[in-house]
């Protein structure tokens, strides 16, 4: 009886752990598949300091996605640092531009938070490694 209880406890813990890993590994970034996202940066190789990102959003058919709201968020790869935020403005239909201050050298992750006119939202993530001061 006691032996059965031991095995039950052990087995339950293993199943719970396996479930956690299965859920964790199957997480989806939640991005919309039928939308093309491209970006350019100025300077071309991002550096510590002010960087301007120009984002182009189009449907799979090539039609520009106008009227979206695009905001930028940049986080360092290490915890404990404040993220920086910026808003992008629409330069032309489907083209959005925002300037963000990557205020430290090192590795950054830039998140583009995008909200379409239909109300759908999704994020795109760009990793910038080893940013150096100019």
């Amino acid at each position: 009886m006691v032996r059965n209880r031991r095995w039950s406890v052990g087995f339950s813990v293993l199943v719970a752990l396996a479930g956690l890993y299965a859920i964790g590994c199957s997480k989806s970034p939640g991005a919309l598949r039928n939308i093309a996202f491209t970006y350019e940066s100025d300077p071309k190789s991002p550096r510590a300091g002010l960087n301007t990102f120009t984002v182009t959003l189009t449907r799979a058919s090539g039609q520009p996605l106008a009227g979206a709201h695009v905001s930028l968020e940049a986080d360092m790869s290490h915890a404990g640092m404040a993220p920086v935020f910026a808003e992008a403005r629409e330069l032309a239909p489907g083209r959005y531009q925002g300037t963000i201050d990557l205020n430290m050298r090192g590795d950054w992750v830039v998140l583009f938070h995008i909200k379409l006119t239909s109300g759908e939202t999704f994020d795109r993530q760009v990793e910038l490694r080893n940013l150096q001061a100019t």
Partner: peptide, 9 residues
């Protein structure tokens, strides 16, 4: 300091 992500990154 570099808040780095990976060696040889």
């Amino acid at each position: 300091m570099e808040m780095r992500a990976m060696l040889m990154g």
